[in-house]
Write a protein that binds this DNA or RNA. Structure first.
Lengths: 220, 220
DNA sequence: TAGTACAGTGAACGTATGTTCACTGAAAGC
DNA sequence: GCTTTCAGTGAACATACGTTCACTGTACTA
């Protein structure tokens, strides 16, 4: 019976200031949605009640944090953006693998997708379907990601002869190819190492084609 | 009061044999779903009742044709496959545009997507999200499409030095890039010719990168 | 021509949904 | 210390849903 300072739901939930507590349950809703998506449900077919149930809240509590499901979706998109940024940072930190840079990056990516499968499932799923607002938000996030990737290429001296616009275009192509591969990876039946190897190999080769083309590109 | 041979619903529905009539209402259900998707609904968030309502049928009639919504979805995927085949046939029929072959093909594609927007909206939407069964069916259809495209390249003598496997891999990349572009095209606010031009230009350039890379590819 | 098969109906069911409302109790502000 | 604020509650609502069932009337079959 110690520490009963939390308002109502205290589950190892060592409260704090009011706004902190609010932020914490907001995060609980986000996590609940992600957990359900990880269960294979697809964000579009999630219901408000399902989410609050998973979060251990009354349905009405939802409205204290989001106007509707779309707004929750936008929060998920933002979290997806953060995830992508972290991916780049991690890749940067590890530096360029000495020999096979492309395959190395793909390995990092593969692990990353597997580790945060719910986030990638959400992005891959809502990128084409779902609501217009969410789709556009994802597009924006993708484009930011592509820009950041282009910056990294500049910093690394990769493809130095390309204009910024062209580099951006190429990174856009890389990003869509990545997200497409993510969708494939996530649908792999568990434990199918052979199938996974082929898939990854295909992915690597597609990227190789792109970079070959990029190296040969001449600004018209 | 002439011609009252149709069972119940006769709306310019000049019946025929029994199986023909059944096939016709089956098609009505498919069309209804497509119409609703065209209205911006997204297949995943369609309900059985919504579809039968749109088709002018009682809800229970649905079960005479499909076990559940997923089965209807698979029928839509098949129709998507037919659409893609038709696209290739049309591109073949028009032959290779004399000068700018790539931009020409993209123009054909752009028109095609606009003309059958509902089908492409469905494919682009369910490709990443939706149910596992539908996703896999779409993947199969995509891969068939890629194979057929590879065959066409072979017949045209494009990229003759590439192995079949490599050509297939590259066509796969082209297909995902196409479908991705379709999603973008369909989300364009109507009448934004400038924005559309940029989008198409970007699409053309991405394909150019791919083909440049393909031409430079050397089998390891 | 009598009998069967079966596409489509309409009513009924149980269940789940989104949203509202007055409420409670603890933290924050004075 | 008294008052205000507000995150979260629980009950209630109207609505929509998927699915079932016995049924009807027509096209086929023998």
């Amino acid at each position: 019976m110690t520490a009963k300072r939390t308002p109502t739901r205290a589950d190892g939930d060592v409260a704090g200031t009011r706004v902190e507590q609010k932020e914490r349950t907001r995060q609980r809703l986000i996590d609940a949605a992600l957990a359900l998506i990880g269960g294979g449900s697809g964000f579009t077919s999630l219901s408000l009640r399902e989410i609050t149930r998973q979060a251990g809240l009354a349905p009405a509590a939802f409205y204290r944090h989001f106007r509707d499901l779309d707004e929750l979706g936008l929060a998920l998109v933002e979290m997806g953006g953060v995830t992508l940024r972290r991916l780049l940072r991690e890749a940067r930190r590890d530096g360029i693998p000495p020999t096979d840079m492309l395959r190395g990056s793909v390995q990092i990516y593969r692990r990353f997708v597997a580790d945060r499968s719910e986030v990638f499932r959400f992005i891959a799923g809502e990128r084409g379907g779902g609501s217009r607002a969410i789709r556009n938000a994802i597009r924006t996030e993708e484009s930011h990601f592509a820009s950041e990737m282009a910056q990294d290429f500049r910093a690394l001296g990769t493809l130095p002869e390309l204009s910024s616009a062209t580099l951006q275009m190429i990174c856009g192509l890389v990003v869509t190819t990545m997200l497409n591969a993510a969708s494939d990876i996530l649908d792999l039946p568990a434990g199918q190492t052979q199938q996974e190897r082929e898939l990854i190999e295909n992915f690597v080769r597609q990227l190789r084609v792109i970079f070959l083309g990029a190296a040969r590109w001449r600004e018209s």
